[in-house]
């Protein structure tokens, strides 16, 4: 059983029975394997934020089940609480959740709630802060004195320190400039490699998804529209555009070439891949 996290026929309806009733997710089945990195894409309102809040039991399914290592997280209160710690959830703009007097205490909030020993808490906090590239002096500083980018790192460290089996991030790079995005990207992959954690991250950016994920899951109108390796997903670029998603520019360039009769495939999403395809074509062989 290497499916760490699984949801089966999951549906969630907000405000059921009122005029405001809204089906946020409908009959979604999805599984994440140990150590896998999954990119979850979809435009606002496609249901992805609702879906991830089921992973750690914050939302209760209207129907269907959520399983962690094969066990239903809603079978008992203890299991639901355990799910909170097994699945670490980082919300959008997590820097706005900081509240403690020092960075150390803020990062320790999660581990403390888990009831860990003080020595273990200290070890985790120090490690997490190091993973997000902050110097140890920052530990005793107030999180409110830090810059926006540093606050984001502290917030990430707060969840890293819980050492969850599954790390779920809702748009971890939202609002950051290219440098900031690159850094956050490095911290997440760095943490993932060190702990072999399963990572699921929500993003609007196809480029980020393609670069980071081994598998991409695309959501549209409360359902999973498609899933597969980045290449498989981008090969269906037309459908992605219809679902209101941004397709990387290079993929669009290749699509355009195909329309004009030069079909060298459209499953590239980085400049390197596209350059290789064009090079192959130029040198008279296909990739």
């Amino acid at each position: 059983m290497n499916e760490v996290l699984k949801v089966e026929n999951l549906s969630h309806v907000y405000s059921a029975g009122t005029p405001f009733e809204k089906v946020a997710i409908q009959n979604v089945t999805f599984a994440a394997k140990k150590g896998e990195i999954i990119g979850l894409i979809g435009h606002t309102g496609s249901g992805k934020s609702t879906l991830i809040q089921h992973f750690n039991g914050l939302l209760k399914p209207t129907s269907g089940r959520v399983l962690i290592n094969g066990e239903d997280i809603h079978q008992s209160l203890e299991m639901t609480r355990a799910a909170r710690f097994a699945v670490g959830l980082v919300f959008q703009y997590p820097e706005y959740q900081l509240f403690e007097e020092t960075v150390r205490r803020d990062v320790a909030f999660g581990p403390k709630n888990m009831g860990l020993e003080q020595a273990e808490i200290d070890r985790r906090v120090e490690e997490a802060v190091q993973i997000v590239g902050l110097p140890p002096e920052v530990l005793e500083a107030s999180p409110f004195e830090l810059s926006g980018g540093q606050k984001r790192r502290v917030a990430l460290a707060g969840v890293f320190a819980m050492e969850p089996e599954v790390l779920v991030l809702d748009e971890p790079m939202a609002g950051l400039d290219p440098v900031g995005r690159e850094e956050v990207f490095r911290f997440i992959t760095g943490y993932q490699q060190k702990h072999g954690t399963t990572v699921i991250f929500v993003t609007h950016s196809m480029e980020d998804a393609a670069r980071m994920a081994q598998r991409i899951v695309v959501m549209d109108s409360a359902r999973i529209l498609m899933e597969g390796a980045p290449r498989e997903v981008f090969a269906r670029a037309g459908e992605l555009t219809q679902a209101g998603l941004d397709v990387p520019q290079v993929t669009r360039v290749l699509m355009r070439l195909r329309e004009r009769g030069v079909d060298i495939g459209a499953d590239a999403y980085t400049t390197e891949q596209a350059a290789a395809l064009i090079r192959g074509q130029k040198e008279g062989k296909t990739c």
Partner: peptide
């Protein structure tokens, strides 16, 4: 609502 969810995700009760 959002902050409460976020802190719950960090184990706040």
């Amino acid at each position: 609502d959002k902050i409460m969810s976020a802190q719950k995700a960090r184990g706040a009760d």
